[in-house]
Design a protein around this nucleic acid. Structure first.
Lengths: 158, 158
DNA sequence: CTTGGTGCAAAAATTTTGCATTCAT
DNA sequence: ATGAATGCAAAATTTTTGCACCAAG
C-alpha cells in the first residue's frame, strides 16, 4: 500500500516496474516499459485502444494482442488496476495511485476520476460479516459532469 | 436477503411494469413481460445470455437482439439497472430493488450481492463539491467469497 | 388497421488464442 | 544460445444494426 505521485515519482515508478519484473524473472522489454509509462503518465484511466494509439506515435507497430497480454500481466502483478466501466471496454489505472472513485456522465459519456475513496473500512467490515474478504473495489457513480450540468439541454457528444 | 419474494410481490412488480409501459405509450408484449419476470424472479443479477437461456425454457424462439433491445428499453425506463461488472458483459438488476453492492470473487469468478449501500451521502456530497451531480452508482468489491476463503488452495471453477 | 416489436442474419467492437519470428537475458 | 515475448492473423464473445414479418392497441 505505497502510494506515489504520478509525475515527480515517474522514475521511481518505472524502477518499480523493472524491479517487479526482475523479481518474477520476467523480461523487461521496451514494449512493457512503454505501455507502463503511458499508463502512469496518463492522469486518467486508459483503454487498451488508447494505449495502442499512443504507442503508435512513439513505437509504431505494436499490436493489440501485445497490449492486452501486457495489461493482463501488469494486472496480475498488481502494478495496474483493471476495471469494467464502459460498456464492453476495460479501463486501466495505475495500481498504486491513491484509491479513487469514477464518475460516468450520463450525457457526454466521459469518465472522470473523483477524489473519493471507493471502498470504506465500513464496506470491508460489512462484507467480512457476510463472509467475504475484500481485496479492492471500484466505485462508479452515474450522473452529470459539471459541463453537462450547466448546459441542461446538451446532446450526447461522445 | 432483502429481495422481494418471487410470488407475493411479483404481481405488484409486474403491474408496475405494465403501468410504466402504458404511461409511455409502449406496447405490453409477452416477451417484455417474460423478460421482466425473469429479472425480478432472479435473486441475483443476470446477463443477457442467462435471460435468453431461461426464456428458451418457457418461450422458445426468443432472439438475443430482442432481449438486448428490451433490456435497453427497461434500462432507459428505469425499471432495471445495467452495470458492467464481468469483463465484457453487462449485468442487469431490478431498478427498484434496494441499493446494494456487488462482490466479485477473484477465485471462482462468481458475483454476489452484498447488503451494502454502494453510494453514501458522503460520496454524493464529495462529488457535488467537484461539480458532479450523482444519479446512481455501482460498487464492485473484489476479493474472496466465503467458500473460496475456506478452501485456500482452490482452483477457478467457473 | 397502423405502428411498433420481434426474429433472423449479419455486422461491429473488444478481447483472446496460435504460431512463427525476434529479442532480452 | 535459449526460451520467453512479440506481431500477425484469425477466432471467440458480447452487443448492435437492418430489414421483413407479425402482433398489440
Amino acid at each position: 500500500m505505497g502510494f506515489m505521485q504520478a509525475s515527480t515519482e515517474q522514475r521511481t515508478v518505472q524502477a518499480n516496474l523493472d524491479e517487479v519484473l526482475h523479481e518474477k524473472g520476467l523480461r523487461i522489454t521496451p514494449q512493457r516499459k512503454l505501455i507502463f509509462r503511458i499508463i502512469t503518465a496518463t492522469a486518467q484511466h486508459v483503454s487498451a485502444q488508447q494505449i495502442q494509439q499512443e504507442l503508435e506515435d512513439v513505437f509504431p507497430g505494436i499490436s493489440l494482442p501485445t497490449v492486452y497480454s501486457t495489461l493482463e500481466l501488469f494486472t496480475q502483478l498488481g502494478v495496474i488496476h483493471k476495471m469494467a466501466i464502459n460498456d464492453g471496454e476495460m479501463l486501466y489505472d495505475t495500481g498504486w495511485s491513491h484509491p479513487h472513485a469514477h464518475m460516468k456522465c450520463n450525457r457526454c459519456g466521459r469518465i472522470f476520476d473523483l477524489d473519493i475513496p471507493p471502498v470504506t473500512q465500513q464496506d470491508i467490515r460489512s462484507a467480512a460479516s457476510e463472509g467475504f474478504s475484500v481485496d479492492s473495489g471500484d466505485l462508479l457513480l452515474h450522473g452529470l459532469c459539471r459541463e453537462c450540468s450547466s448546459k441542461a439541454d446538451a446532446k450526447v457528444e461522445d
